Amino acid sequence: MILALSAAISPEMRGQTAPSGTATSSAVNAHFAAAQQAQSRQDYATAEREYQAVIAAAPAFAEVHMNLGLIYQLQNRVPEAMAELRRALKIKPTLAGANFFLGVDYCKMGEGARAIPYLKAAARAEPNRTDIWSWLATAQELSGEIQAEVVTLKRALELEPQNVDLLYLLGHAYERLGKKEVKALEKAAPGSSRAEQLLAESYAASNEWPSAVIHFQNALAASQNRPGLHVELGEVFLRAGRVTQATQEFEAELLLDPSSLRAIVRRGEAKLIQADVDGALQDWARAIAMDKSRAEEILGIRETGFGDSAFEQLSDAARENIESLAPDLRTRDVPAARFALAFLAAQTGDSSREAAEAAKASP
């Protein structure tokens, strides 16, 4: 709502300044003060009348045109508001508040392309306001400028790195950008291994395992020896509870690339689910020696924000199976066993134990 927006922006953007220059008479000052007081108590009819009196005496006072436009906004008189905002900008093109509100109005009308120039002007005038950058991103989304939207949201996040709404919007923008690239790839190379892989990854991200399996298999049919495909298909099988098939895919990946850390880590996970503790620890000892931090990220032991951990939650049945192995693992005083215990703690949500076991898992 515009009312909420007006409360969020700075006094400079709202035009809350006393008349100066061309408007210095006591009568103009009195009308302006009366308008401000009426606006503060939400007496919009009086505020409108007083601002119009100021404009009659000082028609070149851009901020008053903007304030009058805001009064119209608050009464949902949008066409009149936009007309006043344009008058303000004709007098003072760099006026941040007028540019901002006019851009917001165009966004609400679904006219993103028309909103963008105004919101960019507002951002240039007040570059430290996240609300301006957020509305600019909205305008860019409406106009289909996804890459520009990503850049804008990143700029807003520089100001507020922990803003959950901005993080959500950025993630959503990346998702749409990815779909756009998938469509472009499908058009350029329909049925290619890369196109099938992208489709498979999209289905996997949505937990649509059967469709993901089909497209990964199509990708492999088109390019049997491309590294990475077998391990991705194996991960889908693992999440779908088809552990034997998952293991076969990890083995196939390791035939192509014997040093694939991801395949080694995942094969160890599959072995643990199958209660092959010795086999799991053998794989994980090798993984720890290669790159312990990355191995933790693959299993979701180390939180990476947009990394693998969201993909890493096992089914309840699989989690119960591996939890039963904890007593055996605690008797084994080796880094791989502590690594396995950290994985179990991550699966059960025991963050304190997870951190402690992970710290002890160094070889």
Rank of each mutant, 00 (worst) to 15 (best):
A295C: 05
L233E: 03
A317K: 12
W284C: 03
A280R: 01
A287W: 01
V243F: 08
K271G: 04
A289D: 10
S309R: 08
E208D: 15
I322Q: 00
A295W: 02
A317P: 09
V243R: 01
T304V: 13
A221V: 13
E320W: 10
A246R: 00
W209S: 08
S293C: 05
Q217P: 11
N207L: 15
L233T: 05
R262H: 10
N321L: 15
S315W: 10
A287V: 00
A280E: 02
I298D: 02
P258Y: 04
V213A: 07
G234V: 03
R242I: 15
L233C: 09
N207D: 12
R294G: 15
G234N: 08
G241S: 10
R266T: 07
E249G: 09
D291W: 01
G279N: 06
G234C: 13
G305W: 06
A270N: 03
E296R: 06
R294D: 12
L220G: 03
E312G: 01
E312D: 05
E320P: 08
E323G: 15
D276M: 01
S309N: 10
A246D: 02
E320A: 12
D316E: 14
A270Q: 02
H215E: 02
E232T: 09
A287T: 02
S260I: 12
R262N: 12
D308T: 01
G279S: 08
A246M: 04
F237Y: 13
S259N: 15
S206I: 11
R242S: 12
D276Q: 09
A263T: 11
I273P: 08
D316L: 14
T304C: 03
R226F: 14
Q274I: 05
N207S: 15
E296M: 06
A263S: 02
P210V: 06
A289P: 07
Q217W: 03
S260Y: 05
G228D: 06
F306D: 11
A318F: 07
L256T: 04
P210R: 04
A317N: 07
E208G: 10
E251K: 02
L256F: 07
G300S: 00
V265P: 08
A317H: 13
R302S: 06
A252V: 05
R226E: 15
D257T: 07
P227A: 11
L255M: 05
L229T: 02
A318R: 00
A205L: 13
L314V: 00
R267H: 10
L238M: 11
G228S: 13
L272K: 04
G268H: 01
I214K: 14
A289M: 10
L254K: 04
L220W: 07
Q282E: 12
W284R: 03
R239H: 07
D276Y: 06
W209Y: 13
D283K: 04
A285V: 09
R239S: 09
T244S: 12
P258R: 03
K271W: 08
L272I: 06
S223H: 09
I264Y: 02
E251S: 01
S309D: 04
N218Y: 09
E297I: 07
S206F: 10
N321G: 13
